[in-house]
Write a protein that binds this DNA or RNA. Structure first.
Length: 567
DNA sequence: GCCGTTTTCGGCCCGACTGTTTTCAGTCG
């Protein structure tokens, strides 16, 4: 039995129990059991006794054992008899939870979205105790928009919204300090909404100014400390602003940066020290509230080093603090191995890219323009490539503060051949191989193409290994585990493409790469000078996989890098 | 339902906002 199926079943049981109005702690016990399984790296067969896992006891353990045994869960089946299936999707509606939905079912027999809609139209909802005209209105509106609402927003879209909001907040003089928080600050690849913490002594003025400056589509909530709006930038997106006093800024920022699991862990830790964390500060044993000047101080108060937002995810980060000093950080990055110039589809010249990298204090860099197959990108023929190679070698002599290496981003063609002959490749310092075409091929063909590149002794790195675009396309679906095994076998580097459009490899695969000892290069794939900045996003994405500095190629000194290429 | 070198019973993270109430439950993050 698949572990994922068991996890989903436990979560489903929790959901049904919620709809049945079960004790909320019992409900969360099933969620915790699901999480315990999820967080355990081992496969089911490797776990000797599931009930030994923290969070799994007799009740949830029995469910798991039954599932492993028979593939069924009698607990879930009984619940399904009591609770109609049509209630499940209603949980997604804003403002409706288990209890209210249970009430709608018991009192009005509502068992589907369709029935709920009709009840709203017939004004039967507002007659129920606990509901009123406003609830009825809201539910109907939610139901109408249900299908049109986008789920999660990819980071490359939210980045634009964040930039626009930052600009607005900078322009409000009553704002003393502000920061984006939430999943965006944790560099999740998608976000459901955006959170901002705004420090001010005049919340009502700031609130007014904000609402006036934003393209507000709808106001969801508007209290003294919280403003929730749906804003229409490119797509509609929900944004929460928390207006707090200056001294509360740090604890509010920590609280609303999350994740939820991280906060739960921190609060448990605080409790064990007889303290209490809230967004307003840390309540001490004597009842006084302590506030902080920085998140560093906040963590230090609990005896912890600063935990970067990017790793505040599943709550286990507080147990991994000894790994933090080894975690790759932006200061460690001394090179970028993948970028384009006007020779192919880039916006800037060789010299301009070199100067931009010098101003970032890189010790070395590689120019990697596209190869001839990619006609739309003005890919280089062998002749042009060798001409560029010559120019790079000349230019490199002019600088003593940076080493400019000559490379290519060579296409792996649909027929599993490579775009350049070995005779050409051997003249280059660094060869990237990547797939830009025929994404729809069956996995065996895709893997054959990748295998060709892996086997070639002159290829050093596979770029954007899955070809995905975050939140838009899933790429060409390679068998990543096989790909990493080959990389390990043939001594190749895999790329973490830092472009927020790609973030390819994804976090789970980066973890896998590190486990297998495959070195990762974080590269910007910059097509213009300003895109060199996405290195910071890539590094934070790498942190989410707990990549160690030593496993990241572009933290290596030039000599070590060159030695690796030679072997 | 799960957990426990203070505990086998009594907790389980904490607080704001809304819409309903007339002091609060439900929902959300």
């Amino acid at each position: 039995m698949n572990k994922k199926v068991i996890i989903r079943t436990l979560e489903k049981i929790a959901l049904y129990m919620e709809l049945k109005g079960e004790n909320p702690f019992k409900v969360s016990a099933f969620r915790k059991a699901a999480q315990a399984l999820e967080l355990d790296q081992r496969s089911l067969s490797e776990i000797e006794d599931v009930t030994k896992l923290k969070g799994i006891g007799k009740g949830t353990g029995d469910v798991i054992l039954e599932l492993m045994d028979s593939g069924k869960s009698s607990v879930l089946e009984e619940l399904k008899e009591e609770v109609p299936k049509g209630l499940i999707p209603l949980m997604k509606l804003q403002g409706l939870g288990g209890k209210k939905i249970a009430k709608l079912y018991k009192e009005l027999g509502i068992d589907s979205a369709e029935a709920l809609k009709q009840a709203c139209i017939d004004h039967n909802i507002q007659k129920l105790p606990g509901f009123g005209p406003k609830s009825e209105d809201k539910i109907l509106k939610e139901l109408m928009e249900f299908d049109s609402k986008p789920g999660r927003h990819p980071i490359w879209k939210t980045a634009e919204a964040v930039a626009a909001i930052n600009e607005i907040l900078e322009g409000i003089t009553e704002v003393s300090e502000f920061s984006v928080a939430g999943s965006y600050r944790r560099t999740k690849e998608t976000s459901k909404d955006l959170d901002f913490i705004v420090a001010t002594s005049q919340p009502s003025i700031v609130k007014e100014q904000l609402l006036a400056a934003l393209p507000v589509q709808e106001t969801i909530a508007s209290g003294d400390t919280k403003v929730s709006v749906t804003v229409e930038f490119q797509d509609p997106i929900d944004i929460d602003f928390r207006l707090v006093a200056s001294e509360e800024f740090v604890t509010a920022l920590h609280h609303f940066t999350g994740s939820k699991d991280h906060n739960v862990k921190m609060r448990q830790l605080a409790k064990s020290q007889n303290k209490k964390i809230s967004e307003y500060g840390v309540e001490q044993e004597d009842g006084s509230i302590k506030t902080f000047n920085s998140e560093e101080d906040f963590f230090a108060h609990f005896g912890l080093p600063f935990i970067p937002p990017s790793v505040r995810e599943d709550g286990r980060e507080t147990d991994r603090i000894e790994e933090l000093p080894e975690l790759v950080s932006i200061e460690d990055i001394i090179s970028d191995l993948h970028m384009h110039t006007v020779w192919s589809d880039g916006a800037h010249s060789l010299k301009e890219m070199i100067d931009a990298c010098r101003s970032r204090n890189y010790e070395y860099m590689v120019i990697t323009d596209h190869s001839q197959y990619l006609k739309v990108a003005n890919g280089l023929t062998p002749e042009r490539l060798l001409e560029q190679n010559g120019q790079i070698r000349e230019l490199n002599k002019e600088y003593d503060d940076i080493e400019v290496l000559s490379g290519t981003e060579m296409d792996i063609l649909p027929d599993a051949s490579l775009d350049f002959d070995d005779e050409v490749l051997k003249q280059l310092d660094f060869v990237i191989a990547s797939i830009h075409s025929s994404f729809q091929q069956p996995q065996e063909q895709i893997m054959e193409r990748i295998h060709t590149a892996m086997k070639n002794p002159y290829v050093h790195m596979i770029a954007h290994p899955t070809g995905r675009i975050v939140g838009q396309r899933s790429g060409y679906d390679p068998d990543v585990e096989q790909l990493l095994d080959w990389a390990s076998e043939y001594g190749k580097i895999v790329e973490l493409n830092a472009s927020p459009y790609r973030l390819d490899l994804a976090v789970e695969f980066l973890e896998m790469a590190q486990e297998k000892g495959v070195p990762v290069a974080i590269n910007t794939d910059a097509h213009a000078i300003d895109q060199l900045e996405v290195m910071a996003i890539g590094v934070r994405h790498a942190q989410k996989a707990w990549l160690k500095r030593d496993n990241v190629v572009n933290t290596w000194p030039l000599e070590k890098f060159k030695a690796y290429l030679k072997k």
